[in-house]
Design a protein around this nucleic acid. Structure first.
Lengths: 133, 133
DNA sequence: TATTGTTATACTCTATAACTATA
DNA sequence: TATAGTTATAGAGTATAACAATA
């Protein structure tokens, strides 16, 4: 299962990056934006947990996204050590494009499969993600 | 689905790398060895398709594995442009350890799930992998 | 002419540890 | 003392294009 998992991840990520080549974003950028696409602000460590990278790695990615005006780093009310990552208006637009491309890829790839099969796959992915927490 | 896919991939890969830290292998090394573990020799491009990386990327990974005596690059009978990648005896042993750790992680993570659920997940992964071929 | 694999280059990702500011 | 995030460093992954050898 794990080998197939890696294969599917590579394939979908490459397909997405190719499709969104005009946006000039790295796979990590896509991942971060897609996670932020729901509009909920997040701290760096929370976003790191969501995208699966460490804060130290995220710093560089966020630097790039901030420089391009897609996110802002704001003070976190209540804990001045924390940083609140939020999409700008332009970032929200870009993130929506990323999500749309993801949804479209998913729709195209999984069109023939019944809902129970999709639900089962989500359960397996969740189990693998939680395995070592 | 795609975000969950990436999350699961990150989580399992980090867990595996941590568990096999004594082998001092990178995630890409693990992936290559796990794919070669069945003992079937492969060309560089074939292995690249299996692990999801391009030949140019694979060159560096194979250099490292060859330097450490885990694989050999042999002439391909019938096409002298091709290179046949094969595990050495030591490589086969290491690859077996990698596979064992993968199987164990899978067993532990997916213990509670019925076979139909696992089969459904494999179908979804295959569909995502094939989406853009 | 096309294909296999390698090389070269430039950029990105990653882990780790040290550091600052805050709790 | 512990935590949030950044910085610094070194190694690894990646895409792309150019190249030699072979088909």
């Amino acid at each position: 299962m794990i080998l197939e998992l890696q294969r599917a991840t590579h394939a979908t990520l490459q397909s997405l990056t190719a499709e969104l080549v005009d946006l000039d974003l790295t796979p990590s950028d896509l991942n971060a934006l897609a996670n932020l696409a729901d509009g909920t602000p997040r701290t760096v460590s929370r976003l790191g947990a969501d995208v699966g990278t460490r804060p130290a790695t995220l710093t560089g990615i966020l630097d790039r996204l901030e420089r391009r005006g897609l996110i802002t780093r704001a003070m976190h009310p209540g804990d001045r050590r924390s940083v609140r990552i939020e999409l700008t208006e332009a970032g929200a637009e870009t993130a929506a494009q990323v999500r749309a491309a993801m949804d479209e890829l998913e729709r195209r790839a999984l069109a023939g499969l019944p809902p129970e099969t999709l639900a089962a796959a989500l359960a397996v992915l969740a189990a693998l993600t939680e395995a070592d927490r």
